[in-house]
Amino acid sequence: MVNPYAGEVEITLDGVPHVAKLTLGALAELEAGLGDASLMDLVERFEGGRFSGRDVLALVVAGLRGGGWRGQAGDLVAVEIGGGPVAAAKAAAELLARAFSLGETK
């Protein structure tokens, strides 16, 4: 069970629930993977509904790794994400929102 007050989001991979969380290390890894874009650029894309599949994947991977998962982005190619792409996008948005909130949930 996840703790939304700790910034956690549940993501199900092949029927197995995982805790995802954007820790400081996960955020640094995410930012390194964004290239020229900043975390604020990413937040603005999500707020404006202009995010890409690459954005969703980067956030999901960073969140899973922050939750202790040891995989890489390539490991998700053949994995069934519970709820499909829509649930993955929702989880990505929740990860961002919870990472930058003051303990409030949506």
Rank of each mutant, 00 (worst) to 15 (best):
M1L: 00
M1D: 00
M1E: 00
M1G: 10
P4T: 15
Y5G: 04
A6V: 00
G7K: 15
E8K: 03
V9D: 10
E10L: 12
I11P: 08
I11M: 04
T12G: 07
T12Y: 10
T12H: 11
T12Q: 02
L13T: 01
L13Y: 02
G15T: 01
V16T: 13
V16N: 06
V16Y: 00
V16P: 00
P17H: 04
H18P: 01
A20G: 07
K21I: 15
K21D: 06
K21V: 14
L22P: 08
L22K: 00
T23R: 03
L24Q: 04
G25T: 06
G25I: 00
G25K: 12
A26I: 09
A26R: 09
L27I: 11
A28Q: 08
A28Y: 07
E29S: 14
E29W: 08
E29D: 15
L30N: 07
E31V: 09
E31T: 15
G33I: 07
L34I: 11
L34T: 01
G35P: 12
D36F: 09
D36V: 09
D36Q: 11
S38H: 10
L39D: 06
M40T: 07
M40R: 15
D41F: 06
D41M: 11
D41C: 03
L42H: 06
L42N: 04
L42K: 02
L42D: 00
E44F: 04
E44A: 08
R45H: 01
R45S: 01
R45A: 05
E47H: 00
E47V: 00
G49E: 03
G49P: 09
G49A: 06
G49F: 08
R50C: 07
R50G: 07
F51L: 10
F51R: 10
S52K: 03
G53Y: 02
G53D: 09
G53C: 02
R54Q: 11
V56K: 11
L57I: 12
A58P: 01
A58N: 04
A58H: 05
V60R: 04
V61C: 08
V61N: 03
V61E: 08
V61T: 15
G63V: 13
L64T: 06
R65G: 12
G66R: 07
G68L: 10
G68K: 07
W69F: 10
R70I: 15
G71A: 11
G71M: 06
G71V: 08
G71R: 05
A73M: 13
A73I: 05
A73S: 15
A73V: 11
G74C: 07
G74Q: 09
D75S: 10
D75H: 13
D75N: 13
L76V: 05
L76I: 05
A78T: 10
A78H: 09
E80K: 03
E80H: 05
G82H: 09
G83H: 02
G84M: 05
P85N: 15
P85L: 14
V86I: 12
V86S: 06
A87F: 14
A87D: 14
A87N: 11
A89P: 02
K90W: 10
K90L: 15
A91D: 05
A91S: 13
A91I: 02
A92N: 13
A92S: 14
E94W: 12
E94A: 13
E94P: 03
L95R: 14
L95E: 13
A97M: 13
R98S: 14
R98W: 12
F100P: 01
F100S: 01
S101Y: 03
L102E: 09
G103H: 07
E104H: 15
T105C: 08
T105Y: 12
K106G: 13
